[in-house]
Amino acid sequence: MHLVYPAVLAALLFCVGVYGVLARRNVVLVLMSVELMLNAVNLNLVAFDAWLRDAVHAGQALTLFTVTVAAAEIGLGLAIVLLVFRTRRTADVDRLTLLGDPSEAAPEAAATEPEGRAA
């Protein structure tokens, strides 16, 4: 089998995941897109493992580890999402702007405050 097929498929799948992460609004859908990106990496690992005929099968072992870490990641991520939903009543990443600048004057205040502290 040509190596180009799995490599190109993995690249395209990764870019689909990038689009999902950037364009989606619901946090759970963003997590789903992250899963797509992780799976693209898994496909690359398996294909290159089969190509290089690694003696210790580093690609396949790393794929298994990636799958496990992804399972842990989605469990923790959903726990955090549920916590955010419980406190903020929304699962919309565009509305989670608590750390953003509230007004236009915020950069000036942030710029002047450290000087006062230093003086």
Binding site: M1, H2, L3, V4, A7, V8, A11, L12, F14, C15, V16, V18, Y19, L22, A23, A47, A50, W51
Partner: peptide, 25 residues
Amino acid sequence: ALLVALAAAGTLVTLVADAFRTSWI
């Protein structure tokens, strides 16, 4: 997001197809 994804896809696919054009598993 669509622009970023298409640019990334174009770059990656061009690079990968050029690099592994003759590789055989």
